[in-house]
Amino acid sequence: MENSEHIPLLEVRDLHTYFHTFSGTVKAVNGVSFEIGKGEVMGLVGESGGGKSVVGFSILGLIDSPGKIESGELLLEGQDLVTAGEDRLREIRGREISMVFQDPMTSLNPLHTVGRQMDEVLRLHSDLGAEARQTTCIEMLESVGISRAAERLKAYPHQFSGGMRQRVVIAIAMLARPKLIIADEPTTALDVTIQSQILKLMRAQIADKGASMILITHDLAVVSEMADHITVLYCGNVVERGQTRDLIENPSHPYTRGLIDSIPDTTQRLDRLSQIPGSVPDIRNLPQGCNFRERCPRAQAICAQKEPSLTPQHKSLMAACHFPLKPGEAA
């Protein structure tokens, strides 16, 4: 992986995905850019409604009407997915890019056996014969830590627990050996005790297969454990990005600071947990200037007039803020 810095696996350039509804245009993704190298894990972080999942579905070309990718480029190893036809996209889905969903209770079809659902993907994306496919499925199930895999292939989803199902979902996502896995809140619906198991498993799987991953989550604790670098979204814009360590230890955007401060700290005894005041503004009707200014403790006059652009900060960080935090500075 000596040239992973030079040719990114996926490069998102100035992506705009809008939803044209009767009550106005929702600019769910409004100029997002990032790149992810081979074998890297990128965390895509933000509050609900920040446009995280829309980025994921845009990459897969699964934005349904009234949504539309208005502009931007999605370069998968140099090939633009925005202009690729539906046939090409269908080849890419599952084979080159796959996805792990939030709720393992509904992301498997309740009426088909696990084996059948795995086989379906392999039949679509490989030339293997029936027996070879079954062997592959068994190996894959074993590799995600499911014992008696041959027997479990004949089981239905309801015979598995939530954590086991998410293992199955991960196994299905890995089956065709994709280059990129988009994991949309993969542990949110799971018990805390299962969460770390699943995260470790995903980490091991992508390292083993040399794949990259976009980890979509609102949980900074999860990304800080998993990701090489992090992109923080707010109202469809990238507000900050950088290496995980730099960003978690010394974020320069007040929004990122707020997210980190919202994580309960067990070492300190507080009467109230820290929170970001206010809530996400109506995305159909964004304020002028910086989207975050109404909730920002550092906002000044200029924030209401001029939208900040991404500028380099300390270390690896890039942030879109007129008054970024210096390392060690409180919000």
């Binding site: 897969l60 699964l62 889905r93 599952g94 796959s98 992301s107 079809n109 379906e120 979902v169 299905i172």
Partner: peptide
Amino acid sequence: EKEYVQAAKVAGLP
């Protein structure tokens, strides 16, 4: 609306 249909789309099924 259920995720298994989304998952089938993501898997590239026609």
